[in-house]
Nucleic acid binder design. Structure first.
Lengths: 207, 207
DNA sequence: GTCTATACACCGATAGAC
DNA sequence: GTCTATCGGTGTATAGAC
């Protein structure tokens, strides 16, 4: 019988190979486009033959699925890392969180297409891969509820504004920041519409 | 030499075949998804062999291109047909035009993906196919300018709101109208933000 | 001119030797 | 676990019948 250490090392090596494949997949997706990713390209990048990938992933969609989970986990961790941040009022908080997501989304077209658009024909994320995105949304809902925003429709409108601006940014000005500049104005409109209290007077900066 | 009538009839027949192919392509796109459209499926639907399509279209992308032009032309004509409509004030006008686009977009997923999303890997519409969409945008810009909205950023924000809500509608509630109900509230927020005059007093309906 | 027949290169996926 | 060989399906191209 194999010792624990041997079994652990095997599992560790297996996990490392999986991550290697996923890294290669991200590189190919960013290089040739998310939906133009081919197993042969991924395999070549990790020094394998294409069918060997099936020892680690059940299908091409399973690779997309793992990438989907990675992307949302990455944002989940980024967001959680800023959980303790303090803001100068509700509007500053909403704007900061909004820009945090916008910047993350607009920074990587392939990643955003996988996370938020349905650009892969038959792809549906599995429940496991979907879990981190649920965590993010629930944290956002809780944050907005703490600010007095409990109407789900108001939240959907805010999400739509952000999503619409990200789409336009990536479609019409990839790599630029034209829509990012509009984000603050749009969020102020939304904050006025939902009755979010105006900013408290700014304290004069002390010399 | 062929008579004019013969030549006309040939051209007419050729155009009819083109439209037949495009109709079949729309049917396949709606049935199996826009990006899962195959030339063999289209050909089968019109009673041809797949390579015969190349007598009428230079490539699969050329078919997408013609479909793109058809879709925007269709909306262009719908919009132009309502050019003479009168409204009870600026907000009612913006809301009506906004809902007109929302309904058109949300009614057909495949068509919306082709018109407004970049879901086909290598597809870029040709200038000719792009022309009707330019007409629509310019008519919208002129309409908003007539209402006093001249800041391009304000217009982009409105477009983002609409696009974001359509995306959410099609992604999360296809065939439903949950986001359509939010559209009015979102447009009111935007109208307040850009300083559009409030609605005039409603005249009492006369019995 | 239009269509059929055939072929090519590429894709995801599977079977089986080692 | 990785390989080679191969399958059915795809977009695309071309030769040749009519």
């Amino acid at each position: 019988m194999l010792g624990e250490t041997t079994r652990d090392r095997q599992a560790e090596r297996r996990l490392a190979t999986r991550l290697e494949i996923l890294d290669a997949a991200w590189a190919v997706a960013r290089d040739k486009g998310l939906s133009s990713l081919t197993l042969r390209d991924v395999a070549e990048r990790v020094g394998m033959q294409a069918p060997s990938l099936y020892s680690h992933f059940a299908s091409k969609h399973a690779i997309y699925d793992a990438m989907f989970g990675q992307a949302w986990s990455e944002y989940d961790e980024l967001d959680a890392a800023h959980a303790g941040d303090r803001f100068d009022g509700p509007r500053a908080e909403v704007l900061a969180k909004t820009m945090q997501f916008f910047d993350f989304a607009a920074a990587d077209l392939a990643r955003y297409q996988l996370m938020n658009q349905r650009t892969i024909p038959g792809f549906e994320p599995s429940p496991e891969a979907f879990a981190p995105s649920v965590r993010v949304v629930e944290r956002d809902l809780a944050r907005l509820a703490r600010l007095g925003i409990t109407d789900r429709g108001d939240v959907e409108i805010l999400f739509s504004i952000i999503g619409g601006l990200v789409d336009q940014q990536l479609a019409n000005d990839p790599g630029g920041d034209s829509r990012r500049k509009l984000l603050e104005r749009a969020v102020q409109m939304w904050a006025d519409g939902v009755g979010l209290p105006p900013e408290p007077r700014k304290r004069k900066a002390r010399k």
